[in-house]
């Protein structure tokens, strides 16, 4: 077995760690990006809070807009607009065991699809993908759908999350409590 961390490393065919994203073929890059997004989805679905938090860079932004998809989160209300410090608080709150809306936790399964690379630089890339999330909790069953945008950065040979925007398709309407990691 290979440790998860070393599986996360981006490698060339000869085993060397990737130092520049532009050195990979688009096909390889798409595969690595997909694997990263699937891993993030799994960590969220299984409430692996610490491992999920470790995906973020120090300058991270985690954003779920409201009332449309092109609002300015610095000037208008968003459902969620976390910097790195607030991501940390969110995770700590979930881990207290007294975040009542997640006690018991939501049962989750999500599908990430329609993954498209938007732009690639040496150490960062932008990618978009759709997410469909099935949530079951005490209130009932809820389906969430989102058009997501990500910025990933190559740090020490592996991807980190710099920016994630979760564009819920119904974010202009009343939505139920969204307390799992979306």
């Amino acid at each position: 077995m290979t440790a998860t961390h070393s599986l996360s490393l981006l490698r060339h065919a000869d085993g060397r760690t990737v130092e520049q994203l532009t050195a990979l073929s688009l096909l390889d890059l798409h595969h690595h990006v997909s694997q990263f997004l699937f891993k993030e989805a799994r960590l969220q679905d299984t409430h692996a809070y610490d491992d999920w938090e470790a995906l973020w860079t120090d300058d991270a932004t985690y954003w779920v807009p409201a009332n449309g998809h092109d609002t300015d989160p610095e000037l208008q209300m968003s459902i969620l607009y976390d910097n790195r410090s607030r991501i940390g608080i969110r995770v700590k709150q979930l881990k207290t065991g007294r975040r009542h809306t997640q006690t018991p936790r939501s049962e989750l399964a999500r599908t990430i699809s329609n993954i498209e690379l938007v732009s690639v630089a040496d150490h960062e890339l932008d990618v978009i993908a759709n997410a469909v999330i099935f949530e079951d909790n005490m209130r009932g069953e809820t389906i969430w759908a989102a058009r997501n945008e990500y910025r990933l950065r190559l740090v020490d040979g592996a991807f980190k999350l710099v920016r994630k925007k979760v564009g819920l398709v119904n974010n202009h309407k009343p939505i139920f409590t969204l307390s799992f990691l979306v």
């Binding site: 209300m77 459902i79 608080i89």
Partner: peptide, 28 residues
């Protein structure tokens, strides 16, 4: 106003640190 917005986004609404738990209580 900037601080009012930041604190509001953190604490209330569907993902808020406070209101998500209040709302859980309402539903219970």
């Amino acid at each position: 106003n900037r601080r009012l917005r930041q604190q509001t986004m953190g604490s209330v609404g569907p993902a808020g640190f406070l209101l998500a738990d209040d709302t859980e209580m309402y539903e219970r």
